[in-house]
């Protein structure tokens, strides 16, 4: 979970960089060019395959672990107070992860499938498609909710990944935790700001 998770975080940062190009006031030229490079560069295509495998491995592993963990406690407690010793989000990574997975499927069917499998119609651009979809309030809401869950998912995930890899040191733990939280915050704010900006300025 740790290795695939950290790989997916790197992808998120890269994706955020690409999305920020949407805000460049050049009528979408930079974003269109970036998107075109993403589909034509051989290196990127290989990484893309790795990315899908990474998501798949992360999901399959999560399912396997969840099943094993359920089996480890066949009889539940009549009274249990988990909130006394751990945070809700640390205990519900499977739930937040599932919400994110549903979002990824919606997201891929809207952009990836249309852009890469069906192909755009003559005068359509990927920039135009994105702007168009963010004029839809429901789409903006789904997008924001998904990224808020992603933010809490990452807040636990990043420091947890370091612990799993055995990187735990009294001197560096606060730095790891704060950096993880900051990354989660930046990713959430960055991804949610873009649809809000488009909705309110171009509507």
């Amino acid at each position: 979970m740790a290795l695939t998770g950290l790989f997916l975080v790197v992808f998120l940062l890269e994706h955020l960089y690409g999305n920020l190009l949407l805000l460049k006031p050049d009528g979408g030229a930079a974003f269109n060019e970036y998107s075109h490079n993403m589909t034509s560069n051989v290196f990127i295509r290989i990484v893309e395959i790795l990315l899908f495998l990474g998501i798949l491995a992360h999901v399959v592993n999560a399912l396997r672990l969840t099943i094993e963990n359920k089996k480890a406690r066949p009889v539940k407690y009549a009274v249990n107070k988990p909130a006394a010793n751990s945070s809700w989000f640390s205990r519900n990574m499977g739930l937040t992860g599932s919400i994110i997975l549903v979002f990824i499927v919606i997201h891929l069917s809207d952009y990836f499938f249309e852009y890469r499998v069906e192909g755009l119609d003559g005068d359509e651009t990927i920039y135009g498609e994105v702007i168009e979809s963010f004029k839809n309030l429901w789409y903006v809401i789904i997008y924001i909710v998904a990224f808020i869950f992603l933010g809490f998912h990452l807040n636990h995930a990043i420091q947890s990944a370091f612990q799993t890899l055995g990187i735990n040191h009294p001197k560096y733990n606060p730095i790891i935790k704060k950096t993880g939280a900051a990354l989660a915050f930046i990713i959430t704010i960055g991804f949610t700001f873009i649809p809000l900006y488009i909705y309110f300025t171009m509507h």
Binding site: L65, E68, N69, K71, A72, R73, P82, A84, N85, S86, S87, S90, R91, M93, H156, Q159, S160, Q163, T164
Partner: peptide, 15 residues
């Protein structure tokens, strides 16, 4: 033995 997996919630350390 059938113990579960660690997901780093940190509950054990507290209890």
């Amino acid at each position: 033995e059938g113990f579960g997996n660690c997901s780093n919630t940190g509950a054990c350390e507290v209890e």
